[in-house]
Design a protein around this nucleic acid. Structure first.
Lengths: 143, 143
DNA sequence: AATAAAATATGATAAAAATCATATTTAAGA
DNA sequence: TCTTAAATATGATTTTTATCATATTTTATT
């Protein structure tokens, strides 16, 4: 459902949402370790997210990655789409080109309602909401 | 969510459910073309399914693959588990080792109810049910 | 201005998944 | 019993994904 890269992207973005701010930037190496993702790998992913303005960064001494107040409104779906592309998560389970209620693949009716709900949840849930959740101890940022 | 191999496995099993019987076996090459999957690739997958008694086969002239009446009761989940392993579809979205309502990852509450429903649908839906669906024109076996 | 600390850009390597090829085994039919 | 048609077993190749490495650019600090 989600690629490894997207999982890492979400973990990193959430880590930043919980631990960083405009005034508290975090260096690659200080992100990689707590979320347990190879440094060079998460660097590349964060660079992508930064270029797409989903997280923020500054170069040079005292630089690093962080989430701005704008970034806090970024939705989970935006991160997924940025890393995996919109195709992947929307595609038909059996790879039927146009799969919808008028032309459903054989598994369509087993999943489409639930899939719609999940996608909707991704669309309405922001980094801010999840980071609050984590800070309140209601969920866990893995590894 | 599903690997390519599992998609092919489901397509092939459904093709057999619709078109084969104990008396009408179908050769690899006559399956591969209509479902649009490379011959050698679908051969390997069907051999696996056959070894696990999810579809049936006989060697030699007049041989081929088919679904027995028993096979018709095989559930979609059995095919998925046979090809991808049970891990894949059950695993946490963020790869949290033990992810459940007591120890939820940050995305858990966005997906778990819907995921349970989908898994349940896979557990209760048989090849027979889907092949009837297809024969009635209510859904489409892709490609 | 010079230095050093950070991200950035680019690309190389490794691992996994998908795809392809072929020699072997089995069983029907002549 | 011989031939032939089929699956089976095994493994090679290709493509994609994940991972690692490094030279370049930017910017704060001295």
């Amino acid at each position: 459902m989600l690629s490894n890269s997207t999982k890492y992207a979400i973990k990193a973005a959430l880590y930043l949402a919980v631990n960083s701010s405009e005034k508290k930037k975090i260096r690659i190496k200080d992100i990689a370790e707590p979320i347990n993702v190879p440094k060079a790998y998460i660097a590349k992913i964060l660079q992508d997210l930064s270029k797409k303005n989903l997280v923020s960064s500054t170069k040079g001494p005292q630089g690093g990655f962080y989430v701005s107040n704008e970034n806090r409104q970024v939705k989970i779906s935006e991160i997924i789409d940025a890393v995996d592309g919109e195709e992947r998560i929307n595609s038909c389970l059996l790879s039927l080109g146009e799969c919808n209620s008028d032309n459903p693949c054989s598994l369509h009716h087993l999943v489409y309602k639930e899939k719609q709900k999940i996608l909707r949840n991704f669309n309405i849930t922001s980094l801010e909401m999840l980071s609050r959740h984590i800070k309140e101890g209601k969920s866990v940022l893995p590894l």
